[in-house]
């Protein structure tokens, strides 16, 4: 058998660099306007969310419906840090704001991870239905809490609310294409490496058969919590990026409706496929921008799409297939032999 070289990864890296270069050049020459750049950034943020939700729902076989809750938690933490602790404004030079933003992103990830741990630990011992309900409930609790928190910060002459029913506004625009792309690629790499590690295999074993996995000596609760916490960490990071592109946060953004959008991305792309989630997130974000003129009818179509997907195409677009560059070389060699 001819040994497979890791050409796919090389091509992928090359492709990334080329795409990055082209988009940057086009943007600098004003061929891609700010609106399109914004959509591209939103696509990547949604892809981070979809991939991290796929880790929970697709690879570990859990059923979380509260991904937007973790996202909004991260968003609030990051927005709070940049806007109110470091007092970054639109006038702050970018090289000064960037380290603060990185700290904010890390803090957002950490807080979301902590929240995910606190929620996951009691609930993941029970069956999936309970997790679904608890995560929906979590989104509602987040809404209630951010509605409740209302301490005020004096910021350059005007008093600003944190949380409260009006939401957090005045967040500086710090997420740019380069930064979001770096985080996006990092997320894909980390989650892909997790899945093909010993831990990831344990998670997949749990998805396939919990009892059998338990008998093989896998600590079920530990790995479920691990996947859940990792997923919610990336949701928090994505929330931090999102907060700094749409520049405001509202308690209702963490609710059920938003979470269902990410669920649709995961199931459209295919449960247990990183590539599928990325494709679906990119596609759905773009399509929903095209569908903006029809307003809320979009949401109705999403509901129908979810039902039809489950009835007619439970495997989604990609099933469990991956792009070759997302599969380790060894794995591909094994599949090539068979």
């Amino acid at each position: 058998m001819k040994k497979l070289t890791n050409k796919a990864v090389l091509f992928a890296i090359l492709g990334l660099v080329v795409v990055y270069g082209i988009v940057t050049i086009l943007h600098q020459n004003h061929i891609l306007n700010d609106y399109i750049m914004r959509i591209i950034i939103l696509m990547m943020i949604n892809a981070i969310l979809a991939v991290s939700l796929n880790l929970i729902n697709g690879f570990t076989g859990l059923f979380s419906v509260g991904h937007a809750g973790f996202m909004i938690t991260g968003g609030y933490v990051a927005g709070f840090i940049t806007t109110l602790v470091f007092k970054v404004t639109a006038e702050t030079p970018y090289y000064q704001a960037l380290p603060m933003f990185v700290i904010a992103i890390l803090a957002a990830g950490a807080v979301s991870a902590l929240v995910g741990f606190l929620i996951g630990l009691p609930v993941l011992r029970l069956s999936d239905d309970y997790l679904a309900i608890v995560t929906i409930g979590f989104g509602e609790i987040i809404r209630v809490i951010f509605n409740f928190i209302s301490f005020k910060v004096d910021k350059g002459g005007w008093v600003q609310d944190v949380g409260g029913p009006r939401g957090l506004s005045g967040i500086p625009l710090l997420s740019n294409f380069t930064l979001v792309m770096i985080v996006f690629v990092l997320t894909i790499i980390i989650i892909r490496n997790f899945i093909y590690s010993r831990h990831g295999r344990a998670c997949i074993a749990i998805r396939e058969n919990e009892v059998a996995a338990h008998l093989m000596g896998i600590n079920i609760t530990k790995y479920k919590v691990m996947a859940f916490v990792l997923g919610s960490t990336f949701a928090g990071v994505a929330g931090a990026l999102l907060a700094h592109i749409i520049q405001m946060l509202h308690p209702t953004m963490g609710g059920f409706m938003k979470s269902v959008e990410y669920l649709i991305m995961v199931y459209l792309g295919g449960m247990g496929s990183i590539s599928g989630s990325v494709i679906a997130a990119f596609g759905l974000t773009a399509v929903s921008e095209f569908l903006r003129p029809i307003g809320e009818l979009r949401m109705v179509l999403y509901g129908v799409l979810l039902i039809i997907l489950m009835l007619k195409m439970p495997a989604g677009l990609m099933g469990r297939k991956e792009f070759p560059f997302l599969v380790p070389l060894k794995e591909r060699q094994i599949h090539a032999k068979n």
């Binding site: 999936d128 809320e296 949401m299 109705v300 999403y302 129908v304 979810l306 997907l309 489950m310 009835l311």
Partner: peptide
């Protein structure tokens, strides 16, 4: 009904889809 023989999670997701569909339709 078409999902009776499928894993339980599939029906759960469909249920979320139905709920999402109905509420958004009325809202629209």
């Amino acid at each position: 009904k078409p999902l009776r023989a499928k894993p339980r999670l599939a029906a759960l997701i469909t249920a979320i889809g139905v709920s999402f569909f109905l509420s958004n339709l009325v809202s629209y």
